[in-house]
Amino acid sequence: MSNNLQSLIYSNEGGDKPTLSVLDQLLVPHEKTYIKIPDVEAAWSVIRTMQIRGAPLIAIVACLGLSVDLATNPKTLAELEPLSTKQEVIDYVIKKMDYLRTSRPTAVNLFNAMDELTGAIQAAGESKADVIKTVISHAEFMLERDVSDNKAIGDNGAKDILDNLKDRSKVRMATICNTGSLATAAYGTALGVARSLHAMDKLESIFCLETRPYNQGSRLTAFEIMEEKMPNGTLICDSAIAALMRTKGIDACVAGADRVCANGDTANKIGTYMLALCAKAHGIPFYIAAPFTTLDTKLANGDLIEIEERPAAEMIDTSKAPTTMPVWNPAFDVTPAAYITGIITEKGVIRKGEDGTFDIAGFIAKHS
């Protein structure tokens, strides 16, 4: 994997002085500038402003940013000084987690990561140092796990697509938004599937939708495809996907996810629902690729997902529309489970049962 695709740079050589910088993705591909993250406020800001994005990466940056804050931020160290009991320290850390939870609402990975970290510190030793060390060590574990999980997602997805490929030896794939190394700690989810197919010499071509209005596909995915030298990488307008399917042919569509509900309904970047509808109309398999932590059985269906709405300026500025024109700018949409062929995770591919529905809860119970 190219060093050009590092979404973050984390180090902790001494074991107690972690440092974190993240790639400013608003400047990619024209600049590669890293932003230092010295505290939770900086972590919150880069998540909120979408200087970093992608559900897995949001969770990792929040956890690592908390680690840096607790270990090195002078203001935090001063506030921790008078705290004497383990519960006081835990309560203090949880307040910082609650703040990080407010950065962006739709991606469940962030909330799951905070819950997991809460469980870890509650099981930590009794001293203040024990709690802080546990935050750091568990955040580092989550960073390593993200990379290995993404590779497993890529391999599982590639195998499933190839097993169901008809009359072809190589795959023509389409994807939306950015789900590669820049959306995760490394490797990627949906784009990780393309990366695995490429490594197997089974990727014939890959088409990425530009992903209006924020252009994560044209700014980020196109950049990754070129950096990785994937074959026949092509950028298309979002509205060109139906014509592409009809005239050039696609074997599989793979998208990421910010949340997968108990029935399989999936929230992802705006335009994913459109891609799934086009795939269904053309008889093309449509997959979701996401880590196990994206599965959310607390929500029965996609109607219950809180959809983030972004500022009007994001659309006005990129489309050069009249500045006073009213705007509806949802960051995500929900793809009903009926249009999803399979949900690719690091623990395997979730497929529909004989009744035509996904058993997400059963899959979680089996693999937890």
Rank of each mutant, 00 (worst) to 15 (best):
D359K: 03
P231S: 03
K170R: 15
I307N: 09
S148N: 09
K96D: 00
T294G: 01
E126F: 12
P56A: 02
I316N: 07
T72M: 14
G65E: 05
A120T: 10
T118K: 15
E140R: 08
D160T: 08
A183P: 12
K128I: 00
G125I: 12
G233Q: 05
P285L: 00
L299W: 07
L57S: 10
Y92I: 01
T294H: 08
Q25T: 06
L275K: 07
G180C: 04
H198C: 10
I58Q: 10
V40R: 11
L110F: 09
T102D: 02
S103V: 02
T179K: 05
L26T: 14
E31V: 00
E224H: 11
Y10Q: 01
S2H: 13
P105A: 03
G356H: 10
V93H: 11
S103Q: 03
K95Y: 03
D160H: 15
F286K: 12
G264N: 06
K166N: 13
P231N: 01
L295E: 05
K347W: 00
L295P: 10
I288E: 04
E227G: 06
P38S: 13
C208L: 10
N232P: 08
V254A: 02
T211M: 03
V89P: 07
V147M: 14
N232C: 06
H138A: 04
S103P: 02
V147R: 15
K36L: 09
R104Y: 05
S84C: 05
D296V: 08
E228G: 04
K229H: 13
Y214T: 09
T19W: 01
V147W: 14
I161V: 11
G362K: 08
A129M: 12
Q216G: 08
T297Q: 06
R48A: 11
M274T: 11
I37V: 08
S196V: 00
T324V: 12
S11L: 12
Y99T: 03
V89T: 05
L66F: 07
A123T: 04
N112Y: 10
T357R: 13
I250F: 13
K298R: 14
D355K: 15
S181C: 10
L5I: 01
A289N: 10
R104P: 02
A152V: 00
A313E: 15
A262D: 10
T234V: 12
D238C: 07
I161Q: 07
K133V: 02
T76D: 10
D69Y: 14
A240W: 10
A139S: 15
T106D: 01
R53W: 11
C208H: 14
A290L: 01
A194C: 10
S67Y: 13
T341Q: 06
P231L: 02
A123K: 15
A222R: 07
A267H: 01
A331N: 05
I250A: 04
D69L: 13
V349E: 06
A71R: 12
L203N: 04
K32R: 15
I9Q: 15
K133F: 12
S137L: 14
G65K: 13
H138D: 14
L277E: 06
G192E: 05
K86G: 01
A199D: 12
I250C: 04
G188D: 09
K96P: 00
A279M: 09
T184K: 04
D69I: 11
V40F: 09
L23Y: 12
I132D: 08
D149G: 05
M114A: 13
I9W: 08
